[in-house]
Amino acid sequence: MRRLPALATFFVLSLPVLGCGYSSYEARLEATQGRLKDDMILDQQLYSAAQGPFAENSIFLRVPQGLAQRPEFELIPLNPDAFEVEASFNPQSANTNYSLHVLARRDSQEPPDPEQPPRAARGDFRSDVINVLAQVYGPDIASAPIEQVNKTVWPRSDVAPPITFERLTMTDRNLQLIHLYFYKEESGDATYDVALIWEYPSGEAPTATPNPVDLTLGTFAVGQRAASRFSGRPDSVGGATGDGGSAVAF
Score class of each variant (00 low, 15 high):
residue 59 I to W: 02
residue 5 P to S: 07
residue 145 P to S: 02
residue 175 L to Y: 15
residue 228 S to M: 07
residue 51 Q to C: 03
residue 218 G to N: 05
residue 217 L to F: 07
residue 104 A to L: 04
residue 243 D to C: 07
residue 206 P to G: 01
residue 110 E to A: 13
residue 74 E to K: 05
residue 166 E to N: 13
residue 76 I to V: 11
residue 199 E to Q: 09
residue 150 N to F: 11
residue 207 T to I: 04
residue 235 D to H: 14
residue 230 F to K: 09
residue 142 A to E: 01
residue 233 R to H: 05
residue 75 L to K: 04
residue 204 E to K: 10
residue 150 N to L: 09
residue 34 G to W: 09
residue 132 V to M: 11
residue 210 P to W: 11
residue 173 R to A: 11
residue 27 A to Q: 14
residue 67 L to K: 01
residue 115 E to M: 01
residue 52 G to R: 14
residue 171 T to C: 00
residue 7 L to I: 13
residue 103 L to G: 02
residue 190 A to M: 11
residue 45 Q to N: 10
residue 208 A to H: 01
residue 250 F to A: 10
residue 113 D to S: 08
residue 152 T to I: 15
residue 39 D to T: 06
residue 241 T to P: 12
residue 201 P to E: 01
residue 189 D to I: 08
residue 84 E to I: 03
residue 138 G to S: 00
residue 235 D to T: 08
residue 48 S to E: 03
residue 69 Q to K: 13
residue 94 A to T: 14
residue 243 D to E: 01
residue 105 R to F: 12
residue 57 N to T: 03
residue 143 S to K: 00
residue 7 L to N: 13
residue 101 H to M: 15
residue 123 G to S: 03
residue 180 L to H: 01
residue 41 I to W: 15
residue 148 Q to Y: 12
residue 44 Q to C: 04
residue 222 V to M: 11
residue 204 E to H: 08
residue 57 N to F: 02
residue 209 T to Y: 03
residue 200 Y to L: 02
residue 222 V to G: 07
residue 60 F to D: 11
residue 203 G to C: 06
residue 199 E to R: 05
residue 2 R to H: 10
residue 177 L to T: 02
residue 7 L to S: 06
residue 58 S to D: 13
residue 50 A to R: 14
residue 130 I to A: 01
residue 181 Y to N: 04
residue 209 T to E: 08
residue 248 V to W: 15
residue 189 D to M: 11
residue 68 A to S: 08
residue 144 A to P: 00
residue 137 Y to I: 02
residue 104 A to W: 04
residue 182 F to M: 00
residue 138 G to E: 05
residue 104 A to H: 03
residue 135 Q to F: 01
residue 26 E to Q: 15
residue 104 A to R: 02
residue 80 P to W: 13
residue 234 P to N: 04
residue 53 P to S: 14
residue 220 F to W: 07
residue 31 A to R: 12
residue 12 V to N: 03
residue 151 K to I: 05
residue 75 L to N: 12
residue 86 E to V: 13
residue 11 F to A: 09
residue 183 Y to L: 12
residue 25 Y to M: 02
residue 1 M to F: 15
residue 163 I to K: 10
residue 80 P to R: 09
residue 98 Y to C: 05
residue 204 E to P: 06
